[in-house]
Design a protein around this nucleic acid. Structure first.
Lengths: 210, 210
DNA sequence: CACGAAACTAAACACTGTTCAATTAAAAAA
DNA sequence: TTTTTTAATTGAACAGTGTTTAGTTTCGTG
């Protein structure tokens, strides 16, 4: 019994996928592999193999391994944003209901996609290596959701100070999530880190009213 | 010109280091290499080479790569704890001065030892792989410092609730630090994450008084 | 002094990421 | 249509990994 989906092919140019399709195929396959194995055991060779191509194709299409990993992680960001929006959908404004839904969805996505979520932060790149604008956009979209919800809660458009606070709030929630999922020392005995994070967020926001 | 410090040796048993010395030597060399290269480009082979031994010795001494990395990271934890104590030394109680010093020292250690600090969280191990009690102790010592300072500030011994809060506070500060040092999306434009973290800590602590 | 156990190494294995010449097919030009 | 050019794809090579194991040397012990 052998794998029919990956037929050995000859050298040379192929045309069974358009450039766009190929990009998408490689990203999806890489994303699935990342979910399965996690960042430490991820292999570009294996991802290409599963897509029915050879490693070289990844370098052709993305230019570098870093760019490929960035693209794989961008998919995680897009799925994450969609998850948050879905969780917020239908929650009425007023009180802290939407903020609560936001924090809980932030956590639940990370928990249900632990390997991919952690890979976002596992992948380090030099400060000066250029990042494709598509990848920047995927990251900014997530922050924008929090900006929107916090400024809605505050009842005023987000000024510079608010935006700064939002990034601090994100870091707070991120910290709880990262400590929890990476199994680090601090939160080993914490059974409900999401509730802790939420409590801290509400305390900090309440403190801003003064 | 060749390296005198690593003289090629024969096979077989040696006795130029006691077991303790050898352990320490390998950990120090590994720690230095981690500081130089970071987790992603760390190599146990290279660490052993620099110590004048072969890879196999690491497996002999530590049993597994995971155990070795744990030991290397434990050294970081011990240095970190010492750094915090040094920063706290001489700061008088009263007000938030000691808490402020604590948070700032937390950050400055991470900043000055970025690769080693990040390695602590980069190294993932299965939940069930056993951790040497020496390594557990190094991690608990850090948490204990924060427990001590927070309960001193509160003016009461730390009960279960306080200990839970402390772990949440650590996660908050960790989040700011991690976002900053890993160069992730949110804090790229934040010039002073330590001050943001500190502000959040004080807001949260103030909220507990009610 | 002999001998068993402990420490240490070299080598093998199966993998990586990265680069590049060779190959094939598509697209463009004639 | 035929030819030529250009683009996509691969296999193979290279220098590294982590991990295991057989073999070598030396230390302690009887």
């Amino acid at each position: 019994m052998f794998n029919l989906s990956v037929i050995p092919r000859h050298m040379g140019r192929r045309s069974d996928h358009t450039p766009q399709e190929l990009r998408q195929l490689l990203v999806r396959e890489g994303h699935a592999l990342m979910a399965e194995r996690g960042f430490a055991r991820f292999s570009a060779r294996e991802a290409a193999r599963r897509a029915g191509y050879s490693v070289g194709t990844i370098y052709n299409v993305f230019g570098s391994l870093d760019a490929y990993l960035l693209a794989v992680n961008s998919r995680t960001f897009r799925l994450w944003s969609a998850w948050l929006e879905a969780a917020l959908d239908g929650v009425p404004p007023g009180g802290t209901a939407r903020l609560e839904a936001l924090v809980r969805a932030y956590f639940s996505f990370a928990a249900e996609n632990a390997n991919c979520w952690l890979a976002i932060y596992d992948h380090r790149i030099d400060r000066e290596t250029p990042i494709a604008k598509e990848d920047v956009a995927a990251r900014e979209a997530l922050t924008a959701i929090v900006d929107r919800e916090v400024s809605a809660w505050m009842g005023k458009p987000a000024d510079a100070e608010t935006r700064r606070l939002v990034r601090s709030l994100i870091s707070m929630v991120h910290g709880h999530c990262a400590m929890w999922l990476s199994g680090s020392f601090a939160l080993l005995q914490e059974s409900d880190p999401a509730s802790q994070a939420l409590a801290r967020v509400l305390e900090v926001l309440a403190a801003q009213s003064d």
